[in-house]
C-alpha cells in the first residue's frame, strides 16, 4: 500500500463541484466560409479537388491532407448520394433516452470522395440499406444561417 491511511468512512468523503468557464469562436476559414455561404445562399454543395490524388473534399479544404498540395479548384457536387453506413441512436448526450430514435448516416455525395455525417429521416430504420440513394433536404432559404444545419437532414430519393 502506497498510502498509510485512507478515508474509510463514506460519510467523511468530500468532493467539490466545479465547471469549466469556456466560451469560443470558431473561424470557418477560407474553405468553410465559401462552403457554408454557398449552401445558405444557393443551396449548393461545393468541394475542392485534388487532381493528383483524384480526391474531392466535402467539406472543402484548401490543402490536400494526402499529398499536401494547395487546392484551388472548386467543384460542385450533387445533393444526392449513397448511404455508406448508418446507426440508430437511442440516447442523448447525458445518456437519457431520446424521445424518438434518431438515425445518423455516413453519406457519400455523388462527385465527392469524402462523406458527410448527418441525420437520415423520412424513413423507418428497418428499411434503411447500405448503398441506398438519399438526398439533402435544405432548410427554407430565409431560415438558413450558414451552418451545416442549413441541411436539415437527408432523406431517401423519390
Amino acid at each position: 500500500m502506497g498510502i498509510l491511511e485512507k478515508v474509510a468512512d463514506n460519510r467523511e468523503t468530500k468532493a467539490w463541484y466545479g465547471d469549466i468557464p469556456v466560451q469560443h469562436l470558431y473561424t470557418a476559414g477560407v474553405a468553410g466560409e465559401r462552403f457554408l455561404s454557398e449552401i445558405r445562399d444557393n443551396g449548393k454543395i461545393l468541394g475542392t479537388l485534388c487532381e493528383k490524388c483524384n480526391f474531392v473534399y466535402v467539406p472543402p479544404m484548401i490543402y490536400c491532407e494526402r499529398c499536401f498540395a494547395r487546392l484551388t479548384e472548386w467543384v460542385p457536387v450533387s445533393h444526392k448520394g449513397v448511404v455508406e453506413s448508418f446507426t440508430v441512436g437511442y440516447i442523448d448526450m447525458d445518456g437519457k433516452p431520446l424521445p424518438e430514435p434518431r438515425v445518423m448516416a455516413v453519406i457519400n455525395l455523388d462527385g465527392a470522395t469524402s462523406s458527410l455525417v448527418h441525420f437520415l429521416e423520412e424513413i423507418e430504420p428497418d428499411d434503411i440499406t447500405f448503398g441506398m440513394e438519399v438526398e439533402a433536404v435544405f432548410r427554407p432559404k430565409g431560415e438558413r444561417k450558414g451552418s451545416i444545419l442549413d441541411i436539415s437532414h437527408f432523406r431517401p430519393v423519390g
Binding site: 469560443h24 470558431y26 470557418a28 468553410g32 457554408l36 467539406p59 455508406e84 453506413s85 448508418f86 446507426t87 440508430v88 441512436g89 440516447i91 442523448d92 448526450m93 445518456g95 434518431r102 445518423m104 448516416a105 455516413v106 458527410l116 455525417v117 448527418h118 441525420f119 447500405f130 451552418s147 451545416i148 444545419l149
Partner: peptide, 24 residues
C-alpha cells in the same frame, strides 16, 4: 466544431457508424 458539433448527438454515434460498416 463547425461540421459535427452542431448535430448535438451523443458521440457514440461514431462507434455505431463504424461498427455497422466494419461488420458489413
Amino acid at each position: 466544431p463547425v461540421y459535427n458539433q452542431p448535430l448535438k448527438m451523443h458521440p457514440y454515434y461514431i462507434a455505431g457508424l463504424e461498427m455497422n460498416r466494419f461488420l458489413l
